[in-house]
Amino acid sequence: MTTESVTGALKRARSGVGNAGSGRPPSNRERRRRVTHSRAFVFFVLPSLILLVLLNLYPVIYAGLQSLRNGDLLSAGNFVGLNNYIAMVQTPAFWHAALFTVVFTLVGVFGSWAIGLALALLLRTRIPAGGLFKVLLLLPWVVPVVVSATSWNWLVATPQSPLPILAEALGLGNVLFLANPLLAQVTVCVFKVWISFPFMMMMMSSALASVDVNVYEASKVDGATAFQTFGRITLPMISRSTYISWILMTIFCVNDFPSIFLLTGGGPVNSTQTLVVLAYSTVFQNFQTGPGVAIAFMMTIVLVIIATLLYRQIRKVNIE
Rank of each mutant, 00 (worst) to 15 (best):
V142D: 07
S67M: 12
I306G: 09
T2S: 15
S15G: 08
V80D: 07
Q160F: 15
R312F: 12
I233F: 12
V276R: 03
A279T: 02
V145H: 07
A63K: 09
L155V: 15
I50P: 02
K220W: 02
I238C: 06
V293K: 03
Y243N: 04
V109Q: 12
T225I: 10
G8V: 06
R32P: 00
F191P: 04
L121F: 10
P159A: 13
L183I: 01
R312I: 07
T105A: 11
F191W: 04
L208G: 03
Q66L: 14
I314M: 10
F100T: 04
N70A: 11
L123A: 11
L46T: 14
M299W: 03
P47K: 06
L46Y: 04
I247A: 10
R31A: 06
P26I: 13
N78V: 09
P181S: 10
S22F: 05
W154L: 15
P236M: 08
S196C: 05
M298A: 06
G111M: 11
T7W: 00
V190C: 08
C253Y: 09
N270S: 11
L123D: 01
T229Y: 00
P25G: 11
G290H: 02
L178G: 08
M203H: 01
S22H: 05
Q160M: 12
P140I: 09
A296E: 03
I165W: 14
P25R: 14
L99I: 06
F199I: 00
K220N: 11
V147T: 15
Y85D: 03
S205N: 02
A13K: 08
A207Y: 03
L57Q: 06
L119E: 11
W154D: 07
V45Q: 04
V80R: 08
E168P: 01
E4C: 01
S161C: 13
I238V: 15
A179P: 00
A114G: 14
L138Q: 06
L52F: 10
D72C: 05
V213L: 08
T158Y: 15
S281C: 00
E320M: 04
D72R: 09
N70T: 06
V147C: 14
F177M: 03
T158Q: 15
P159M: 11
P159Q: 12
T36S: 11
Q313S: 09
S205H: 02
L82N: 06
A114V: 15
G21P: 06
R240T: 10
Q185Y: 04
R29E: 10
I165A: 14
W113F: 15
I314W: 08
E30Y: 02
P181L: 09
Y85L: 05
N56A: 12
T229I: 03
A20D: 08
N78Y: 13
I86N: 01
V35N: 05
S27V: 02
L275K: 03
L119I: 13
V302T: 09
Y85S: 04
I127H: 10
A226T: 13
V109N: 13
Q313V: 00
S48R: 01
L51Y: 03
L10A: 09
S210E: 05
M202I: 13
L303I: 14
S239L: 12
W141S: 04
A179G: 13
S148K: 07
V142G: 07
N153S: 15
L208S: 03
R126W: 10
R14M: 06
I238D: 05
F252S: 10
D256S: 14
I301E: 07
K192D: 09
N286S: 05
L137E: 09
L138N: 05
S67Y: 06
Q285P: 00
F252L: 11
T300K: 00
